[in-house]
Each structure stands twice: as structure tokens, then as C-alpha cells.
């Protein structure tokens, strides 16, 4: 097995690196959208509520790959017609990496919205009132009171989302991003040893998920300091 896989190890490792990069950058996008979405869902503005509600419903209704394809191709057409309408004479090309990151971030942003919304609601209201009474501004409240505490409530669901997100990145190979699955697939095709290479992919994903669960368990432990357990 090693003599088959050996020559392809650099390619596989490069793919693994791209997979990790896609996952982490999409996670950042998802967290940003998730916080924004949670804020919109909890705000008193009717418009913000409706927009955030439509966003989460839409995303949960449509499969990842379909949404990715729409954003990848549709976004390209949309941006260029926008540019054309502005009267500029340039052609903007969205590469597959960006499209993948934007779409995965967009999709998991909706799941993160629910995660963060639940976590914010779980922080006792009195604490926020106390912070307001102390004269803290809203960003300060978020940084000092809300943020650290909602982290604890958000972590289990956040961890689940991350694990699903990590596996979803395999789908960007269909769009042509040269990540782990894409590279292993081409290696498997040229050696006619697809099973071997797909097994390698599985092992790498299992390693990544195992590292993630270990790190998440550590984080949950860390953020639960001060919580008494029965």
C-alpha cells in the first residue's frame, strides 16, 4: 500500500491543508454571520427579525451543494451584471475557493445563528442589567459579560456545527477546489486504486474530527470552570 500512496503523499498533504484552510475560513465567516443573525433575531426591529428568519429557513431548506452551485455560478453572474450596471468595464472572476468559503460560511452562519441565539438567551438577564447599571457600553457588555458566558452555552452546539462543517467541505471538490477529496480522487484515478486513496481520505478526516472533539472537550472544560457539577 505504501508504494502506491507514497508518491502522492505531498499531493494529499497539500489537499489536507486546503481542506483545513477552507474549513477554518468558512468557520470564521459562519461565526460572523451567526453573531449578526442572532443579533437580528433578538433585536426589536421587525425587519431584522424577518430577514434573519428568512435566512435560517432558506438555508435549512436547501442542500449545501445546491446552494454552493447557486452561489458559485449565480454569484459570478450577479456580480458581473452589477459591475456592468455600474458602468465599469471589468470582469470579476470568483475562484472556486472563495465561492466555497462564502457558501459554506453562509450555510453554517444560519446554524450558528440558532446556536448563538440560544446561548445569548441562556445568559441570565440580571447580569446584563447589572452591567448596564454599572454603566458599561454595549460592546463592553459583550466583551466582558455576555461573550465569555454565552461561550459556555454555545460550545456543545458550536462543536457539532464545526464537525458537520468540516465534513461538508468535501463537497467543494465537486466545484473544483483542489482540496483533500479532489486530490485523492485524481490520485486514485491515475493509479486505479480508488479504494486505497479514499480510505486514506477517511483516515485523515477521522484524525481531524478526533483532534476537534478533543479540543472541544478541553474548551468545554475550560469554559465550565466555576460551574458546580452534581
Amino acid at each position: 500500500m505504501l508504494e502506491i500512496v507514497g508518491p502522492y503523499i505531498p499531493l494529499i498533504l497539500k489537499g489536507t491543508w486546503v481542506t483545513i484552510a477552507v474549513s477554518l475560513v468558512s468557520l470564521a465567516v459562519a461565526c460572523l454571520l451567526g453573531l449578526l443573525g442572532a443579533w437580528a433575531k433578538l433585536s426589536h426591529s421587525k425587519l431584522a427579525n424577518t430577514v434573519a428568519g428568512a435566512y435560517t429557513t432558506l438555508v435549512r431548506g436547501v442542500p449545501d451543494l445546491v446552494l454552493m452551485t447557486i452561489i458559485f455560478f449565480g454569484g459570478q453572474i450577479g456580480i458581473n451584471s452589477l459591475v456592468e450596471a455600474m458602468g465599469w468595464d471589468i470582469y470579476i472572476e470568483i475562484d472556486a475557493f472563495t465561492a466555497g468559503v462564502v457558501s459554506i460560511g453562509f450555510i453554517y452562519g444560519a446554524y450558528m445563528t440558532e446556536t448563538f441565539r440560544g446561548a445569548i438567551l441562556a445568559v441570565p438577564k440580571g447580569q446584563i442589567e447589572a452591567a448596564v447599571a454599572c454603566g458599561m457600553t454595549r460592546p463592553t457588555i459583550f466583551r466582558r459579560v455576555l461573550g465569555p458566558q454565552m461561550m459556555r452555552f454555545a460550545l456543545p452546539s458550536f462543536g457539532n456545527n464545526w464537525l458537520v462543517l468540516l465534513k461538508t467541505t468535501a463537497l467543494v471538490s465537486v466545484l473544483g477546489v483542489q482540496e483533500l477529496v479532489y486530490n485523492a480522487f485524481s490520485a486514485g484515478r491515475s493509479t486505479r486504486e480508488m479504494f486505497t486513496f479514499m480510505l486514506v481520505v477517511c483516515v485523515i478526516y477521522l484524525i481531524l474530527t478526533t483532534i476537534s472533539t478533543t479540543a472541544l472537550r478541553w474548551a468545554e472544560h475550560r469554559y465550565s470552570v466555576g460551574v458546580r457539577r452534581a
Binding site: 471538490s173 465537486v174 486514485g188 479504494f195 479514499m198
Partner: peptide, 23 residues
């Protein structure tokens, strides 16, 4: 369950559809 929940469905399908023909 560890294997099937820890790897992407796409890869599992590739493993079965494209992979098994290797043997």
C-alpha cells in the same frame, strides 16, 4: 458509527462506488 459519522458522505459513496471495483 465512529467511521460513518466521522467521514463525509461523499467520500463514503466514492469508496463504495469507485473504490470497490479496485479489487
Amino acid at each position: 458509527t465512529y467511521f460513518f459519522r466521522g467521514t463525509p458522505l461523499l467520500v463514503q459513496i466514492y469508496l463504495i462506488y469507485y473504490g470497490l471495483g479496485q479489487f
